[in-house]
């Protein structure tokens, strides 16, 4: 059974059209069709959150969503964060506060954090832990991630 269908997905502000098999996952569309490899596959079992992207503003696991379901949607991936060589405040904060070690979880962590900060510009440490509960980090022990999100929250409020 070989069948494809056209989709148009706006990724990082750019409308991208492709013919895809319905079983193609959004993460594969992003990584393999668009070659945007900042979105990582950590577990492929819906657990780790490394594949988190924003879909119409909400954090979602792109390994648990077919590309055809995102037809017409606006997707934001980690590649949208840096502008003209200038790190986004959330990236700067992860770097300054040592919110990453190997960096594998970091794109997903940052996108979940941005979804939180869009809704709640002054999150408590507990709010941050709840918002990042679907993102696993095997390196940092989370403390510096919480700190980085708080730093970024301050930066974004000031901006």
């Amino acid at each position: 059974m070989s069948n494809t269908m056209p989709v148009e997905i706006t990724v990082n502000g750019e409308a991208r059209q492709r013919e895809v098999e319905p079983r193609m996952l959004l993460v594969e569309f992003i990584r393999e069709e668009l070659r945007l490899t900042g979105t990582h596959i950590g577990c492929d079992t819906s657990f780790c959150g490394a594949c988190t992207v924003l879909m119409d503003g909400a954090a979602v696991k792109s390994c648990t969503l077919f590309a055809v379901q995102a037809d017409g949607a606006e997707i934001i991936t980690v590649e949208a964060l840096e502008r003209d060589g200038q790190l986004h405040p959330i990236q700067q904060a992860f770097s300054d506060d040592h919110g990453l070690q190997c960096g594998y979880c970091t794109p997903g962590m940052m996108l979940s954090s941005l979804a939180l900060l869009a809704e709640n510009p002054t999150p408590s440490a507990k709010d941050i832990r709840k918002a990042l509960a679907g993102n696993v980090c095997r390196c940092t022990g989370y403390q510096n991630i919480i700190k980085a999100v708080q730093t970024a929250a301050g930066q974004l409020r000031g901006a």
Binding site: A58, V60, T64, L65, L116, G134
Partner: peptide
């Protein structure tokens, strides 16, 4: 239920 990503969908 689950985490924010799963609850969103």
């Amino acid at each position: 239920i689950a985490d924010p990503q799963v609850r969103a969908l």
